[in-house]
Write a protein that binds this DNA or RNA. Structure first.
Lengths: 337, 337
DNA sequence: CTGAAAGCGCTTACAG
DNA sequence: CTGAAAGCGCTTACAG
C-alpha cells in the first residue's frame, strides 16, 4: 500500500496538504487538489484510517452489544432495530461492530481498547458487566430498553411506552366486552414485565372493572421456542375449559402463531371464540394468520435510530456525557376498518 | 486514559516490557510481570488497540458484507450464518464489522482504509463492486455462495452442494411416485438457480423419467414477501386445476408457509393431495405446520464457520492469498421415521 | 493557501 | 530476561 508520503512526493506537495485534500479540513486550491488526487489515483492511495484514528481519537465506529447466550437469535424486532442503527450510523459515516455477550465474557474486548467511540446496549440485565464497565470508564453508551435500578441514573436509555401501550390494548379488549383476559407476559426477570403488568392492571382500574377472572402469566424463561411456548400455554389453560378466557394478549407475534396453532387443534375459532392481540409486529408472520390479528408495532427501527442519535450527542459532548432519556411510542394496529 | 508510558514509569520498567506483559510475545519474569499488572490496575490502564494496529498491521477485525437494498432483511438462514461467523471469529479473538451495500455505495468505507483484515461477502452479484474492489487491492476475502464467472477464479468461496441436494430431493419425490412436480426455484438472476435446475433435471434423467409434466418456475425478483409469493404462486397454478401437480419443491421455508396457507384456502390437503418439500430449514417455522413438511437444512452456521476459517487461512498466507473452495453439504430431513 | 515538525500510543529489531 | 530508540501513517498547531 502506498502512503501519504508517496502521494505528497509525486504531487510535489507536503503531507499536510495531501491530508487536507482528503479530510477537507482546510481549503486547498483547485490546482493543487487536482494534482494530489491524480497522484493518489496513480498510486492507488487510500488513507489509512487506523493511523488517522490514532491521532484524532475517533474510530468512527460504534458497537452494538447484542443479547446472546451461546447463539444469537435474531427476531424481526432485532432485525428492524439493527436496520435503524445502521441507517442512522451510516448517515454520519459511522461503522457498526457486532458485540456479543459471549465475547464480553472473555475480555470485554470491544468496549476496551479505544476501538469504538460508543456503544449501544441491547437487553440490559439486572447485573450487567457491560454497564459496569461502560460507566466505570465513562464510555458513551445508550441502552435500548429499561436498565435496572442500579444503572438507571448512570446511563442514557431509550425505551417504548410499555405501560401505556399495554394499557391501551387492554382497554381495547375491555371495551369490546372481554372480562376474562389471559395476558402472557414476559418473564419476571425482565424489567419490562412489571411495567407492562402495571399497564394491564391500570386499564381495569380506569374502567372500574374487576380483574378477578383475568390472569397474568409470566413466561418461564426456559422456553426457547416462542411459538411452542404459545402452543403449550394455550393447551394448558384451554384444554380443560375452552371458555375459561375470551381474549389473549401475547407477548410476541411468534407466540401468537403458536397460540393460533393450538386453537386450531382445540377447534377454537379466533377471533370469534377468543380474541388475540400480539405485541411486536412482524410483516411476514402477520400474513400467516387468517384473519390477521391485531398487533402492536414496537417501532424497533425508530428505537435503533433514536439510540444512535442519543449516542452521537454524547460522543460530541465529550468527557462528561449527559444522561438522557427518550421514549419511542409503540403503535397499536387493531386491524379494524 | 493512561498510556503505556505511565504504567512503565510506575512499575519502574521500560515500555517494551509493559508491552510484552500484555501481548505475551516474549517471556517476562514473574516479579516484573506482577509489578506491571499492579501498576496497570492502579492506573486503569488498558492497551490502545488502535496504536497497536498501526504497527502490527492487523486490526483483528473482519467485515461481513451483507446483502441489502435499503433495508437488511435477516432470515433465519442469515441469522444462523452470522452465528457461525461470530463464533468462529471470536475463537480467534476477531471482531465483526457489519457492512451493508448502502454503505458500500458511498465509498466502500469498510473495505478500504485498512480497517479490516479481511471480508466475508454474502450474496455475490453478477457485477459486484465489492469483489472488483477486493480483488483489485488483493484484500483477503471469502464469498459465501457461488460468485459469477467473472470472479470465480479470482476469489475464494464456500457454497452448498446445491445441485446434489436438489437432485436428492427430486429423486425422493420421484421414488415416491410423483411425476408432476412444481419446482419454485430462485430467481434466474441468482446463479444458484441454474445449478439447482440442473440437479432437478438430473434426477429425472437418472431414473429415466420424463419431466414433461413437471415445471420449474423461477421466482420473479420483485416479490418482497416470500410467504406471499408462495401463496400467490400456488393460487396461480392450482386454482383452476387442483390436480395439476402432486408435489411442490419450495425454495425457502417461508415460501412453504405461504404455500400451505394457499392449500388450506383451496382445501387441498398436504401431504396427501400434494407433497411439499422446502429448502432451508427454520426451527420456528417448521413447527407451524401440521404435519411437519420435509425440509433441507442448508447448514448456514457451518457455511459461516467455514468461510471464516478460509479467511483466516488467507490472512495468514499474506500478500498472495491462495484461492480456495469449499463445499458444505446440506442435509435433507424427510421427516420420516 | 502551503510546509516542516512534533506527536498520537504502541511494537519491534537491536544490543546487552 | 530487559532497555533505548526507531518507526507505523497519519493530523495538527505553528509559522509563513
Amino acid at each position: 500500500m502506498s502512503k501519504i508520503d508517496d502521494v505528497a512526493k509525486l504531487a510535489g506537495v507536503s503531507k499536510g496538504t495531501v491530508s487536507n485534500v482528503f479530510s477537507r479540513k482546510r481549503p486547498i486550491s483547485e490546482k493543487v487538489q487536482k494534482r494530489v488526487l491524480e497522484a493518489a489515483k496513480e498510486l492507488n492511495y487510500t488513507p489509512n484510517h487506523i493511523a488517522r484514528s490514532l491521532v484524532t481519537k475517533k474510530t468512527m465506529t460504534i458497537s452494538l452489544s447484542m443479547p446472546s447466550a451461546k447463539r444469537i437469535s435474531l427476531t424481526t424486532f432485532h432485525t428492524n432495530l439493527i436496520n435503524g442503527v445502521i441507517t442512522e450510523a451510516s448517515l454520519h459515516n459511522y461503522r457498526i461492530l457486532i458485540d456479543t455477550l459471549a465475547q464480553e465474557e472473555l475480555e470485554l474486548p470491544f468496549l476496551s481498547g479505544n476501538v469504538v467511540d460508543g456503544v449501544i446496549v441491547l437487553n440490559p440485565k439486572v447485573d450487567d458487566t457491560r454497564l459496569d464497565y461502560l460507566t466505570k470508564y465513562n464510555i458513551p453508551a445508550v441502552v435500548i430498553g429499561e436498565p435496572s435500578a442500579k444503572y438507571k441514573n448512570l446511563v442514557s436509555y431509550v425505551d417504548n411506552n410499555n405501560q401505556e401501550i399495554v394499557e391501551e390494548v387492554t382497554t381495547y379488549l375491555l371495551k369490546k366486552g372481554h372480562r376474562r383476559i389471559l395476558y402472557l407476559n414476559a418473564p419476571t426477570k425482565m424489567t419490562v414485565s412489571k411495567v407492562r403488568e402495571a399497564g394491564f392492571l391500570q386499564a381495569f382500574a380506569d374502567l372500574g372493572i374487576s380483574n378477578n377472572e383475568s390472569l397474568i402469566h409470566f413466561k418461564e424463561s426456559l422456553y426457547e421456542d416462542p411459538s411452542q411456548y404459545g402452543y403449550d400455554t394455550v393447551m394448558k389453560y384451554f384444554a380443560a375449559d375452552k371458555d375459561r378466557y375470551t381474549a389473549i394478549i401475547a407477548d410476541t407475534d411468534k407466540e401468537a402463531i403458536g397460540i393460533c396453532r393450538a386453537f386450531r387443534k382445540l377447534n377454537i375459532k379466533f377471533p370469534d371464540d377468543v380474541a388475540i392481540v400480539a405485541l411486536s409486529d412482524d410483516l411476514v408472520l402477520s400474513h400467516e394468520l387468517e384473519p390477521p390479528i391485531p398487533t402492536v408495532d414496537m417501532q424497533a427501527e425508530a428505537l435503533g435510530k433514536t439510540s444512535v442519535q442519543m449516542l452521537f450527542h454524547q460522543i460530541k459532548v465529550g468527557d462528561y456525557p449527559e444522561i438522557s432519556r427518550a421514549v419511542v411510542k409503540a403503535k397499536f394496529h387493531s386491524r379494524e376498518q
